[in-house]
Design a binder for these strands. Structure first.
Length: 496
RNA sequence: GGUGCCGUGCCCAAGUGGCCCAAGGGGACGGUCUGCAAAACCGUUAUUCGGCGGUUCGAAUCCGCCCGGCACCUCCA
């Protein structure tokens, strides 16, 4: 194998360092998944794409990967400490919203959005995790963990729930660079709960017998705290010390900080040897929000006519360690690049078919470019450079597209396969039903065909005025004509 | 108030001490092809890296100050 190692920025130590594996040759990786109370937006997917690229890079290096990514299907509180005062949570709120009216209860709502999420996941060519645990299916383990933490003196029960006592875990804050002292004076608008020993203490279990999702526990009816599920499920499927734990930058504090406290208090061992966090995606230079009208979901973009691979390409075009600005322009740029891969793929297929004699004129170059792309990925997932190198390969192929020898075409195939394994941008891995039915322009293919024939006849008669007029009229309808050596073809111009 | 991050060409975006008079994409411009176009392919497009100082033989890269922008601080990928 190669001597390359995957180097990633580690939030804990604030430096780029090699990913060291507890068990050599085997990466055990946990990536925090979404809460399924609504459609996931492209910012969520940027984070999941970081995880996806890590496993692809690790696999390219010959590493076996056990990848776990959860689904949070329990609604957690929109505000801490208001369980008694009405207990509204994200799921309950979603159920009461306009979109939520179609569901009979929160369980159906969660199931619906989970299905939608998995579909978007597949469309963006994300690899399936080995395990995709759900919070609701690990209730017993979570309750046991809370009991153990109480028994060990790291947690205590109050009339409102079970809380983790941060003072019992002195290094609380180490991931986010906070100290407990700073956190205390920094607290903004925390609702005070007199039952808590320390206002920074966080819930392991919330008592609430009116909650829409509730389970029975030794503490009575209620539901688990948000942070507990990840600690419990990560340990269950990956062991006490993970190699790598990932999520969005907003999870650094409090979510991952709390996971560390719970897990390490419980096991006495480091929870994860490496932490990575993806910076936020902005849309048109602003934070995504529903009120600004820039809350882009995958299906919204697909309905506008975007290619799912182009969405993927646009989302990975910047490095995960910096905020990325997603714009309509960046998406259409990406569509052009995806098209180059598609044409390369077609050219290679045609070259294999034609089986022309000749040397392999491109194999060595393509191999170098692949190596450079892989090097870039190993260097803290430098997707910008990796994509640049990968794209250079399409230029090499397309330059000789018409005349590729069989040997060259074979090299091209190997190259595109490897690039696709590494970056997932050449071909969709799963074929899914077309989503863009509703808003796609309706076209009358027979009519276009007739017009094209009319134009061909006009051209033969040297009546170029009429030929140009037909082309112009169709263009006004969003249909573009291209005269190719194989004849005239038409394409639908993108609405983006 | 606390904790982090960022500012590179017209736009997006790599590069974090010499291989950088700064990758790649878009755009623009020129060429090939074409009846003309479109598409495709080829080429050109930053002596310069928010500003000012400093360290160094050498800085976009390190340090200081200033200006501008962003995120988190118990809902958030």
């Amino acid at each position: 194998m190669s001597e390359r190692t995957l180097r990633l920025y580690d939030t804990m130590t604030r430096q780029v360092k090699p990913l060291e594996l507890v068990e050599p040759g085997h990466l055990r990786f946990y990536s925090c998944g979404p809460t399924v109370y609504s459609y996931a937006h492209i910012g969520n997917f940027r984070t999941f794409l970081t995880a996806d690229l890590i496993i692809r890079t690790a696999q390219a290096l010959g590493t076996r990967v056990t990848y776990v990514s959860n689904i949070t299907d329990v609604g957690h509180l929109t505000q801490d400490d208001v369980a008694d005062a009405g207990g509204e949570d994200k799921m309950a709120r979603a159920l009461q919203s306009k979109e939520g009216e179609q569901f009979n209860n929160v369980w159906e709502l969660a199931e619906y959005y989970e299905d939608a999420f998995l579909e978007d996941w597949a469309r963006l060519n994300l690899k399936e995790p080995q395990v995709r645990p759900r919070a609701t299916q690990h209730m017993r383990e979570q309750i046991v963990a809370a009991e153990q933490l109480i028994a060990q003196g790291n947690a205590y029960e109050t009339p409102t729930g079970v809380y983790f006592n941060v003072e019992s875990f002195p290094s609380y804050g180490k991931l986010s660079g906070n100290t407990q002292e700073n956190l205390k004076k920094a607290s903004r608008e925390v609702v005070l709960d007199d039952n808590k020993r320390d206002q920074s203490d966080f819930a392991l279990w919330k008592k609430d017998d009116k909650h829409l999702m509730q389970w029975y526990s030794p503490f009575g009816w209620g539901f688990p705290g948000w942070h507990l599920e990840c600690s419990v499920m990560a340990r269950m499927y990956l062991g006490e010390t993970l190699d790598l734990h990932a999520g969005g930058e907003d999870l650094i504090f409090p979510h991952h900080e709390c996971e560390i406290a719970q897990s390490e208090a419980l096991t006495g061992k480091p929870f994860s040897n490496h932490w990575i966090h993806t910076r936020f995606l902005q849309v048109n230079g602003e934070k995504m929000s529903k009120s600004l009208g820039n809350y882009y979901t995958v299906r919204f973009l697909l309905e506008k006519g975007a290619d799912p691979l182009a969405i993927r390409y646009a989302l990975i075009s910047g490095v995960y360690t910096k905020p990325l600005n997603f714009t309509d322009q960046s998406l259409s740029d990406a569509m052009g690049n995806i098209d180059r891969y598609r044409r390369s793929d077609a050219a290679v297929a045609a070259g294999l078919e034609a089986a022309r004699p000749g040397d392999d004129a491109i194999g060595t170059l393509l191999e170098e470019l692949y190596d450079q792309a892989l090097d870039a990925m190993c260097n803290d997932l430098n997707t910008s450079v990796a994509l640049a190198k990968a794209l250079e390969g399409t230029r090499v192929i397309l330059r000789e597209a018409e005349t590729l020898s069989l040997a060259s075409a074979e090299s091209g195939k190997v190259y595109l396969d490897r690039i696709n394994d590494l970056l997932g941008i050449v071909r969709p891995e799963r074929v899914l039903a077309d989503l863009q039915t509703e808003s796609a322009p309706k076209v009358d293919e027979a009519r276009i065909g007739a017009l094209i024939q009319e134009r061909i006849d006009a051209k033969k008669a040297k009546n170029f005025a009429l030929a140009d007029q037909i082309r112009k009229d169709l263009e006004a309808e969003g249909i573009e004509l291209r005269d190719t050596p194989e004849g005239t073809v038409w394409v639908l111009k993108s609405t983006l």
